[in-house]
Design a protein around this nucleic acid. Structure first.
Lengths: 129, 129, 129, 129
DNA sequence: TTTT
DNA sequence: TTTT
C-alpha cells in the first residue's frame, strides 16, 4: 500500500542506458550506501541496484558517473524469474522516480530529474535486462 | 550515507522468531505491498522480506499474524553468501527499527515497537538464517 | 532539493473540501500523530496540517472522517502571509500527493488515492484558505 | 504513529548552538529546500527550521555553515506557545536524528552524525529558544 | 481548536 | 512459497 525508499550514495560504476523495444529509456546503476556505524572491520556498505525510466533515465545517463554522489527516491520492487538452471531468482531494485545529483560534473547544467510518467504500458518482457 | 525505507503492507505468513547464539531475538516476515496502479492483470504486489531485532522482534512475534496490516521503517540491507553450488546469492531485506501495528489483534495491547539498539556486536554467522 | 514526509495518524476533525476559483479541488485536514515515547505526562501528539489536491482531495473528502487512521506522503511547505495586524505569519503544511486509508468506512470501496498532477497553474491567491 | 521526514537543502545561515540549563547541546538552523518545478517566477524554496540535539547538535555546529548542502532525517514537531500579545503561536520544526554533510568543509573530517539518544528527560522549559 |  |  505504501512503498517509499530514499537513498544517498555513490555510483559503483557508470550508469547503463538502454531502450525497451517500444523505445522507452531505462537506466540502471548501483548505489554504494555506506552504513552509519561499522565499529568492526566488516562489510560497511550496501550495494543497491537502482532503475530509472524515461527523462530521469536520460538525465542520469548524461550527468551521473562512477563515484558521483546522488540521492534517489523511489520504491522497492522485487522481480523474479527462472534462470537457465530452472531455479527461481529474486531481484530487488529501487525503481527511482526522483534523482538528485549532489555533485556537479564538468558539462553539467541541471541537477534534478523527476519521473512523472506511468509505467502501465511497459510489459515485463519489454525490459532490456 | 542515507538509507531509509517506509513500507505499509500485509504479512504473507506468521512471523518467525529465532534467537542468535548470543541470545538476541530476531524476527523475520514478508510484507506484501500492493502496487498503486495495475491497470493490466499482471503482478500487483511486491513481497519484501523484513527483519527486526530485539524488543521489536519480540513485539512483532507477539502481535503480528498472517494477513495483518503494518507499517515498517528501516533500511535496505543487501547480504550475499555462497550457496551449496558455489554460486553467490544476494539477499535483500529491510532491517526495520520501527514497526507500527495498524490492526488490532485479539489480546493485543500495545501497538508500537521501536528498536533503539545497536547491531554492532552481532556477527554475520550469528544469524539464525 | 529533496523534501519528503511520511505520516501515519488520525484526523482530528472531518476533512474540509473546497474549490479554487479555477475549480480545482483542495482538501485540508489535520493529522494527530502520536509520539512514540512520552514517559512524562506531557504533550504526546503532533497536530500536522495536511493539504491535498484534485482527485486525492476528493477521495479524502469522500472516505476520511474524524478519528480515521491514514497514511500520508508528501512534502513540507512553508507559506507566509501578512495578517490583519501587519505581522508576517508562517504556515507549515504537508502537501500530500499520496494518501492511504488504513481503516475501512461504511460505504468505502477504494482505499487509495495518489495525486499525479502538477500544481504549476494554480496561483497562491487561488487558494481558498 | 509514524512521522518521518527527509530533506536535502542548504543552510540559510550559520547554525546556532545553545545549551539547555541541564547542559544538553541543541543546534538550530534553517534549510532552504528548492522546489522541483517552478515554471512561474514565484517562490521556489521552502525554508524549513531544523533542530538537532546532543552529538548531532555539536557535529552540525562544527561542520555546517551558511550555504552548505546537507541531508536531514527526522520528525515534524509542532510546538505552540502564547506570545507577548497573548496570542497562540505555532512553530513547526523538523527534529533531526540524522544529518549528513554533503559538502566537505575546510577542516572537516567526519561527515555524519546520528542522534541515538532519548529526549525524555528534557523539559519544555529547558529549551533555549 | 485537536485523534484512538 | 505469498497478503486483503
Amino acid at each position: 500500500m505504501l512503498n517509499r525508499s530514499i537513498l544517498i550514495g555513490r555510483l559503483t560504476r557508470d550508469p547503463e542506458l538502454r531502450y525497451t523495444p517500444a523505445g522507452v529509456a531505462v537506466t540502471q546503476f548501483t548505489l554504494a550506501v555506506d552504513r552509519p556505524f561499522t565499529s568492526n572491520g566488516e562489510k560497511e556498505a550496501d550495494f543497491i541496484p537502482v532503475v530509472t525510466w524515461r527523462q530521469t533515465a536520460e538525465a542520469c545517463a548524461n550527468f551521473l558517473r562512477k563515484g558521483r554522489l546522488c540521492a534517489v527516491e523511489g520504491r522497492i520492487q522485487v522481480r523474479n524469474y527462472e534462470n537457465s538452471e530452472g531455479k527461481r531468482v529474486y531481484v530487488t531494485e529501487v525503481i527511482a522516480d526522483n534523482v538528485r545529483f549532489l555533485e556537479r560534473g564538468e558539462q553539467q547544467e541541471s541537477t534534478q530529474s523527476r519521473d512523472e510518467g506511468k509505467q502501465i504500458d511497459i510489459a515485463d518482457d519489454d525490459l532490456p535486462f
